[in-house]
Design a protein around this nucleic acid. Sequence first.
DNA 1: CGACCGATCCTC
DNA 2: AGGATCGGTCGT
Length: 202
Amino acid sequence: MLTKLPRSFYERDPLIVSRELLGKFLVRRTEEGEIVGKIVETEAYIGPHDKASHTYKNRKTKRTAVQFGERGHAYIFRIYGIYHCFCAVVGPKYVPAATLIRAVEPVQGIELMRKNRQLRGETPITELTNGPSKVCRAFALTDELNGIDLCGDELFICSGEEEKFEVGTSKRIGVDYAEEYKDVPWRFFIKGNKFVSKKPRE
DNA sequence: CGACCGATCCTC
DNA sequence: AGGATCGGTCGT
């Protein structure tokens, strides 16, 4: 039994939301079918003070605009020209913050995920969605979905069966330029889960 | 306007 | 270890 998260879920402290998104289910509906994955890894980007955040110093551009809007929408941006990352806009109103979905555990629509990923040979299932851009490929998340309401029916997040797990934390990945914010423990993951992406460097 | 670089991933 | 590939950002 899956229940769509209400907007109020997203309208809280980004660090709380990032941690609580673990174990929740990301659902994507396309014409080809439904794709579901359990969120196993997230990162918080808390906005104006966070030097790793796209909205550091309240930077508002065409790209970051959705982070300044209503909470509970999708922030999807292009990275390295060819890949995408997917975040949920979270936090108190008017503060541009987001939670990056770094990895999910495939639950439903696995063949569709494989097709969307367009990989050559037999890829182990653990490699399908264990990274932010891999999730976007598998779930067919592109620029067109940037800004979409996660309280709608095309892309949303649900709570499901209560599950017990230990939460691990670490520094965030790929933000070593962020000076005093590069080592803050704002990456959250389900301990022992096989679908978590690479570990950060020491 | 030009140069540089990234919340990444795949292939060599 | 290197390449893909393009928009944001900053310096000239």
